Amino acid sequence: MKKALVLIAILALAACKSPEARYPVTQKSGSHISESIVKNQELLEKEIAQIEAVINKDSTSEYQSSQDGFWYTYNQKSKDSANLVKPEFGDVVEFDYSIKTLDGQVIYAEGEKATRTYAIDQEKLFSGLRQGLKLMKEGETVTFLFPSYKAYGYYGDKNKIGTNWPLKTKVTLIKIIEKEKIQNQQ
């Protein structure tokens, strides 16, 4: 009986030993990440060259480069000096937009997508358009040229926009409802 208790005590102590880490059979060097970085840099350079070609071809428009990595031109700029408000975090905007490839093929025509209501930086929207809306004032129409990483990127929109497509997007900002006005209505 004593031997059985001693044996149980030894087994119990052996079972309390902490697990040992298992090491991988093979270790990766990270070369795949390096290759991916090089591939993405080459893709970006190619897309920038395409965008610059579009800008150079369009002699009637004056494009500006944004700090966020895309280009834009005003089709209709607000001349109302009292209208200096640009949307900020939490403001709600209504806008219409159309999307084309850089060579002008229509992906989503004007009016094909319903007027969109969007709370700035609080809802899902591709990053270039999210940042572009913050540059606009009520009543303005702007054409944006987005490299693919600022548009729908690798995945596309899973409908009409494919993998790594740089886009030309025309946006009309219809209305801005400031956050404070929304809070006062509630």
Rank of each mutant, 00 (worst) to 15 (best):
K170Y: 02
T101M: 07
L43Q: 02
Y118W: 01
Q183D: 13
I177M: 10
N159E: 13
Q41V: 05
I37A: 04
I174N: 15
V38L: 03
N164G: 04
Y97G: 14
A9W: 01
I107A: 03
Y63K: 12
A4Q: 04
I120F: 01
Q122Y: 12
C16Y: 07
A9V: 05
N83L: 13
A151T: 01
D58H: 13
D91V: 08
K160E: 02
N75A: 15
V6H: 07
A119R: 15
V85F: 15
S127H: 09
S127E: 05
K57Y: 09
I33M: 11
D103V: 08
P24E: 01
S127D: 03
V92Q: 14
N159P: 04
I176P: 07
S31M: 07
S36F: 10
T172I: 09
Q105S: 10
D157S: 05
Y118H: 01
G156K: 10
Q76K: 15
K170L: 11
H32C: 08
E20R: 12
V54I: 11
G104Q: 05
D157I: 08
G128Y: 00
Y23H: 04
V92P: 11
A109K: 14
L133C: 02
Q185V: 11
K168D: 04
S127T: 11
S78V: 11
G69M: 09
Q41E: 14
Y155E: 12
I8C: 06
I99R: 05
S65V: 14
Y154M: 06
I99S: 04
V25P: 01
